Amino acid sequence: MALYRERLWASPLFYLALALVIPASLVILAPISIVAGIITAIVLYGGCVALLISAAPTISIEGGTLHAGRATIDLSLTGTATGYYGEDATRQRGTELDARAWMLIRGWVQPVVKVPINDPEDPSPYWLLSTRHPKELVAAINGSRRPEESES
C-alpha cells in the first residue's frame, strides 16, 4: 500500500484550452467537407486529451521507495525533504535551481518539493518535484524512514 500517491493531472483550464483544436480543424476542413471537419475535430481533440492524460506523471511512496514519473530512488538515499510555495517555489524552479538537479516539473502545478540526494554515485544533488500537496509529500518522505536511518 502506498504511503502517498498523486497524479499530476493538467488543470481543467488546460483541457478547455485544448478545445481550440476543434474550431481550428473545422476552419481548415469545412471548405472541403463539413462532415470531415467535424470528425477530424472530434478525433483530434480526443487524441490530445488522451495524450495529456496518459502523459500525467505519478508521484508515489511505496515500500521505502520514492517513485516520480519513471524515476525511482530508495528513501534511505535521500535527505530531509522541504516544500516550497509561491515565490519560494518560483525561485526553486528558477534562480536557485542547480542545473544538475533531476526535475519532475509541471507548469500547471505551482508548489514544489526539494528532495536532497545523499547517494555519492548519483550526479544529481536533489530532486525537484511539482506537487499540489507539498506538506503531505514532505511528511510522507521524511516520515517513511526508519529511526536508525534518519539519525545517521
Rank of each mutant, 00 (worst) to 15 (best):
Ala19Pro: 05
Tyr4Leu: 06
Cys48Trp: 06
Asp88Glu: 15
Ser33Cys: 07
Ser152Arg: 15
Leu26Gly: 04
Trp102Glu: 13
Leu29Ala: 14
Gln110Cys: 07
Trp127Phe: 12
Tyr126Pro: 00
Ile22Pro: 06
Leu29Gly: 07
Gly47His: 03
Tyr4Phe: 15
Ala41Gln: 07
Pro116Lys: 03
Asn118Gly: 06
Val49Phe: 06
Ile28Gln: 03
Leu44Phe: 09
Arg7Ser: 08
Val49Lys: 04
Glu149Tyr: 02
Gly46Asn: 05
Gly143Pro: 08
Arg145Val: 11
Val112Cys: 10
Pro111Met: 10
Arg7Glu: 08
Glu121Pro: 00
Leu44Tyr: 04
Ala19Asn: 02
Ile39Phe: 10
Glu149Pro: 01
Arg70Cys: 05
Pro120Cys: 01
Gly94Arg: 11
Gly83Lys: 00
Arg70Tyr: 10
Leu20Met: 12
Ser25Cys: 12
Lys135Gly: 00
Gly86Ala: 14
Ala56Glu: 03
Gly79Lys: 04
Arg100Tyr: 09
Leu128Trp: 09
Thr131Pro: 04
Glu148Phe: 13
Ile59Gly: 06
Trp108Ser: 11
Ile34Glu: 11
Thr82Ala: 15
His67Trp: 00
Ala19Glu: 00
Pro57Thr: 09
Ala140Phe: 10
Arg7Leu: 08
Thr95Gln: 13
Val109Lys: 04
Ala55Met: 12
Gly37Arg: 00
Ser152Leu: 13
Leu66Gln: 01
Gly46His: 02
Ala30Cys: 05
Ala36Leu: 15
Ala68Tyr: 10
Ser11Lys: 11
Gly143Leu: 08
Gly64Pro: 08
Gly107Tyr: 04
Ala41Gly: 15
Arg132Ser: 14
Ile73His: 02
Ser130His: 05
Glu136His: 07
Ser25Arg: 02
Leu29Gln: 04
Trp102Gly: 10
Val49Gly: 06
Ala140Lys: 11
Trp9Thr: 00
Leu137Met: 11
Ala140Met: 12
Arg106Val: 14
Gly64Trp: 07
Phe14Gln: 08
Arg91Pro: 00
Asp119Tyr: 06
Pro111Arg: 11
Leu13Arg: 11
Glu6Tyr: 04
Pro134Thr: 02
Leu26Glu: 06
Leu18Asn: 05
Ala89Gln: 04
Ala68Glu: 00
Val113Ile: 10
Leu104Phe: 07
Glu121Arg: 12
